[in-house]
Each structure stands twice: as C-alpha cells, then as structure tokens.
Design a protein around this nucleic acid. Structure first.
Ligand code: MN
Ligand code: MN
Ligand code: ZN
Ligand code: ZN
Lengths: 139, 139
DNA sequence: GACATAGTTTATAATAGTTCTAAACTATAG
DNA sequence: CTATAGTTTAGAACTATTATAAACTATGTC
C-alpha cells in the first residue's frame, strides 16, 4: 500500500466514510495532482477508465462526489449550465475562465483586491466574493 | 395596440424576427418591468400562464429565449447547475446572490472597483470581469 | 385581397445529465 | 466468525433541453 493510499484511507475514516476501493481510486484520480483540478462527472469517468482499466459505476461516482462535497473536499463551481463542475480547491479563490476552450485557472485570493465594494441590501451581509476574469486569445 | 406593444413589434422587425403574438407576449412578460429580471424557463412559463390565460408551447418559449439571446436582448447567467437562467440586463454588471433565497440582485459596474488585477496566462487577455457577492441574512 | 413562400409554432419524440431504487456486496464492530 | 450498517451497482425514473416534422402564419408580390 502506497503512502498516499494510506493517507486517503485515514482521511476517509476520519470523515466517517468507509475506505472502499472505489473511493480510494476516486481520491487518486482527484487528489494525486500538483494543480487544482476542475472537472465534470464525465471527465472523471473517463479518467477513472484510463487510470485503472477497471470500472466504477456511474452511480458510485455520483455518490462519492456528493459525499466528498458534503465533507468539504470538493466545491461545486458554476459555469455553463450543461452539467455540474467541481473544484478540488475548496478555499475561497478566483478564476480565469476561457469560454472558448472552457478552461478554468485558479487565482489565489491575494492576487485580487477590491477598492470599492457595494453596500449589500438591508438585512443582508456579504458572505464571500468571487471574481471571474473571462479571458480569450490575444489576437 | 398599446404603445409598448408597438415598440416590441418594431424591435422584433428590426432584428429580423417576425412579430408573432407569442413573441410579443414573451416581450411583455420579460421587458414590461422597472427592474432587471432574472429568470429560468420554468419561471417564465408560469408567468406567461398567469399573465394571459392562453398558453405558449414550451418549445416556442425555448426558441424565443434563444433567439432573444442571440440578438443580445438577454444574457445567460451561471448559477446552480440545475437549469439555465437568463438576465434582461445585458450590460456588463455584477450581482449580489443570496444562495438561501436564490435571489439575484444587480450591481452597476461603477459600484465595484478593483485595485489589484492578476496577470492573465500568456497569450490571453482579460475580456471582462464579473464579481459575485454572496450574501446571507444578517445574524 | 389572393397567393406563394419562408419563418414560426406546436405536440411529441429523443437526448443527456442526474437521482432513485432495491438487490447484491463489503467494511467493521463485537 | 457473525451481524449489521454502509456501499456499490445496474437499471429505471426523472428533469431540463433539443430535435423533428407537420400545421400554421406573417409578409411580399401581383
Ligand atoms: Mn444553454
Ligand atoms: Mn448539483
Ligand atoms: Zn478553482
Ligand atoms: Zn443581472
């Protein structure tokens, strides 16, 4: 058993999730990465199919992603409304978004600063702020 | 024929869209308003049903909304990924978003100013910037 | 106004993403 | 080892959206 695998097992147990082989594989697909991973369920299905040539049922992938989201290991992101996207970076952060290529790139919170902030409607307070920079090819 | 109706007919003709009674009704439902309207297709279907007690087929509502979007009279907005939302404010602007009530409120561009902007990836330029202020009830 | 025609509406079927169901399987506590 | 609650799975069901193709209508021409 690899060191990483042991960590996933620990993490799953600590969250009250049984460390099944399916969940460990999904952890590997999602979290064995240098950079933040932005993905749809169908992206993930393809990756799992390639990574291990053993399959995990679609229902299990949905179940697991929802469980991980509930435990705070994933954040849902709102892009085009075709299908759901998830983000392995669960901290508050911003994005570059290329609508042509559908590519999303993380921006750390510190790299964006607001000078002027609008007053929220009465009785409401600002919970968090998310900035999307739509980008496109330079001529 | 009301003054507003005459304007919708003119606007539709100018866009190369025939002013059918369905399209005029949809214009009334969408644009006879003081404030920006943020809506889903099912919201709009309900409004049409109440406004005139005559129905417009779902396919026509989809066709019309897509035609209006193409002509630039509506903008699609990305919220929760259940279904599509549209915005009658097609200018570049920002939003307050209450996730509990699912309420969206417009913020004019001038009411938000950025001090620090991140450098886009090489070969890409920033096309536009959208800021979402997630809000919630005060205590 | 009548006619031809392209544009539009409509019911319905098809598709796609997601959730539900219930039976088989499995991790874990005792 | 056993019992049990949690999990996986195939497939059905559900929902939003798009496609299809026939009926209808706005509009330009005579
Ligand atoms: Mn869409
Ligand atoms: Mn969702
Ligand atoms: Zn991200
Ligand atoms: Zn708006």
């Amino acid at each position: 058993m690899s060191n990483r695998e042991a960590n996933y097992i620990k993490k799953l147990r600590n969250s009250g999730l049984r460390p099944t082989k399916q969940r460990i594989k999904i952890c590997e697909a999602l979290f064995d990465r240098d950079k933040t991973f932005h993905f749809s369920i169908s992206d993930l299905m393809k990756i799992i199919k390639n990574l291990h040539n053993e399959k995990i049922s679609l229902a299990t992938v949905y179940n697991t992603i929802h469980a991980f989201q509930k435990k705070g290991y994933l954040k849902e992101i709102n892009l085009g409304n075709e299908n759901s996207f998830y983000d392995t970076n669960t901290s508050l952060h911003h994005h570059f978004y290329d609508e042509q290529t559908k590519e999303l790139i993380d921006i750390n919170s510190e790299e964006v600063e607001l000078k002027k902030i609008p007053t929220p409607p009465s009785g409401k307070k600002i919970e968090d702020i998310e900035v999307t920079f739509k980008i496109s090819k330079n001529i």
